[in-house]
Nucleic acid binder design. Structure first.
Length: 581
RNA sequence: CGGGGCAUAGCUCAGGUGGAAGAGCGUUGGCCUUGGGAGCCAAAGGUCGCCGGUUCAAAUCCGGCUGCCCCGACCA
């Protein structure tokens, strides 16, 4: 490509509305252009990056016999009502009506659409298993789009869906995708780690997120500093020796004086209570009263300095829930939030194991402005259910090796795979007849990669400050960037053009004759080619040109006629870029 | 959805006690120059986000709105 004939540009200064490294670099290099919050256009070089990522993904999907389809973005409400997601997906779903007032939405994901396609055709066990994928836009009305295309309202995604006959078969398929994902991120030259994750709105039985660690991430992960344990923060467990704690409690039953009601006016938060009573927050037992989707009431107890993980609590309760409102709390406990406790509650109590350290605890007295002190769990109230529902914190003991401590890191979720089971095939009646003439639901899985987000991740990793990025060979829009220093010098320019004609398929040449060398170098840094060829004074002095391998920070002098035989094989060998974050 | 910030030329930003709209870069034409966004001359380029109010007079003061960015909540 010749710069003079191409649509390509750069920004001299970082744009006002960009802050993260990838966003700044993608804007400055002219890869993307914002059109509204979370909505971007891709320029020719920006789109080349997307297509290069897609190429890798397509090859790896084909390798596991996953076939490409194209599903509509505009989808009728009826399909979403079949699974209930029309109501449960909430504000994130972009809803619209056609001229006949019929409801539609822009698809945020495609489980319903693909299930609709497959159920139309699949009837027999002989047609299974198989899997399908597509690459295309997704729409989510994000409350807060962020960091350029890292979190956008419209984004590009690869989503795949698998259809199996048995759980065992489906688990094998899941493993195949898991391995394919590892290969994909490997080829993308990104350090991405599979992490066990909560299933969220997609649902299903289990899932893995593929996390890329970076400063501008939005996902929190807990990692052990001594073993290989790693987990999403919201579902991460941590080690507490409950047996030991229970024994300690027994030994204190006699020594701690009996419970005593104390006046604690207006102490509706653990902080204010701890200050008023001059005791550590960790001595307080917090009570959360929740109402489940099916209308059950459950009291969850946790130590004052800890937070409940809603995802972990959900795993215990096995259904959705919300915090009960003030009216309900008053109806059941006769006191407001902040003054309720487990002493008189007759329903199900789920205690987090952290409260076992509260051997001289404090709980609400079920009476406004009063708490009880000298509370021992198991003595003053029954603890029939001890679970792990607390959010893990940095410094907690690793639940796996029980030796290391957990550290928190932020990352970006680039991929997410789900074992769905019958979550969609059952409500949408995707059935097949097995060998024994029994009707069965197809076992499904789904597998996503955020392609535009992955592009951002590459800029986060390979960006160097605000002025330069060196892209991996398989990703870069151009592998070689040729700079003739002086286009008006016939020898220099014709030599540069000759080199360009030999490398045409992988190269861009900056043939602009009105542009200073400094500007060409600056643009070269921003446009990301891993190899830079400079044709200038060295040609006059020694008859040579300069090759700069930007990843390796290596410089070589070469006669122009050597280039073809040396550079192309070098590019084809796709050397692994140096450095890791 | 809560909190904070910003909005003036294509871009990055000054200005502001109310009284003729500014710079740098970019663009166009001319010259000069060719190893890190170089220099000189000339020119074009604006509804100072929108609506309303105060005033003889508003980019500037007041009220409302919108958009964008950041923190948080939310979120495959």
């Amino acid at each position: 490509m010749k710069v003079s004939e191409y649509f390509i540009f750069s920004l001299r200064e970082p744009p006002r509305d960009a802050e993260s490294k990838s966003h700044i670099l993608m804007m400055r290099g002219g890869f993307i252009k914002r059109i509204a919050a979370g909505i971007y256009s891709f320029t020719p070089i920006g789109f080349k990056i997307i297509k290069n990522i897609e190429k890798i993904i397509r090859e790896e999907m084909e390798r596991i016999n996953c076939y490409e389809v194209q599903l509509p973005l505009l989808t009728p409400a009826e399909l979403w009502q079949e699974t209930g997601r029309w109501d449960t997906y909430g504000k994130e779903l972009f809803r619209l009506k056609d001229r006949n007032e019929r409801n539609f939405c822009l698809a945020p994901t495609h489980e319903e659409i693909i299930t609709d396609l497959v159920r139309f055709a699949v009837k027999s066990w002989k047609q299974l298993p198989f899997s399908l994928f597509q690459i295309g836009q997704k729409y989510r009305d994000e409350a807060r789009p962020r960091f350029g295309i890292i979190r956008a309202k419209e984004f590009i995604m690869k989503d795949a869906y698998s259809f199996d006959r048995t759980e065992e078969e489906a688990k094998n398929t899941y493993k195949k995708f898991f391995d394919a994902y590892c290969r994909i991120f490997d080829r993308l030259k990104l350090d991405v780690i599979p992490v066990e994750a909560a299933v969220g709105a997609i649902g299903g039985k289990f899932s893995h997120e593929f996390i890329f660690f970076t400063d501008y991430g939005e996902d929190k992960v807990m990692i052990c500093n001594s073993c290989s344990f790693i987990s999403k923060k919201e579902i991460s467990s941590f080690f507490l020796d409950t047996d030991k704690l229970l024994n300690e409690i027994k030994s204190k039953m006699e020594t701690i004086p009996s419970k005593q009601k104390v006046y604690t006016p207006s102490t509706t938060t653990v902080e204010s209570l701890s200050e008023y009573l001059k005791v550590p927050i960790s001595q307080i037992i917090k009570s959360f009263f929740v109402e489940t989707q099916s209308g059950k009431h459950i009291l969850a107890l946790i130590r004052g300095d800890r937070q409940i993980s809603e995802d972990k609590l959900k795993l215990v309760i096995k259904e959705d829930f919300k915090l009960a409102d003030e009216i309900k709390v008053r109806e059941i406990f006769g006191a407001g939030k902040g003054f309720i406790g487990p002493l008189n509650f007759k329903g199900r109590i789920i205690a987090d194991k952290t409260i076992l350290t509260c051997t001289n605890g404090i709980v609400g007295a079920d009476e406004d402005d009063y708490h009880f002190i000298n509370i021992i769990p198991g003595r003053d109230f029954e603890i029939s259910e001890i679970h792990d529902i607390a959010l893990a914190e940095e410094g907690d003991i690793c639940p796996n090796c029980k030796k290391g401590t957990l550290k928190e890191r932020v990352g970006l979720e680039l991929g997410h795979i789900f074992y769905l089971g019958e979550k969609y095939s059952s409500p949408m009646r995707l059935e097949f007849t097995d060998k024994d003439k029994n009707k069965r639901y197809v076992i499904m899985g789904c597998y996503g990669i955020g392609i535009s987000r992955t592009a951002s991740a590459i800029f986060e990793k390979y960006g160097e400050g605000e002025n330069s990025v060196v892209l991996p060979y398989e990703i870069a829009p151009f592998k070689v960037h040729i700079i003739p220093i002086n286009t008006k010098d016939d020898v220099i320019f014709s030599t540069a053009m000759k080199i360009y004609s030999e490398l045409k398929d992988v190269a861009i040449i900056d043939d602009r004759d009105d542009t200073s060398p400094g500007e060409k170098f600056a643009d070269c840094d921003l446009w990301g080619a891993p190899i830079k060829i400079v044709v200038g004074k060295l040609l006059k002095e020694k008859g040579k040109v300069e090759i700069i391998y930007r990843h390796e920070r290596k410089r070589e002098e070469m006669r122009p006629e050597e280039i073809n035989e040396k550079i192309l094989p070098y590019i084809l060998s796709q050397p692994a870029p140096k450095g890791s974050p």
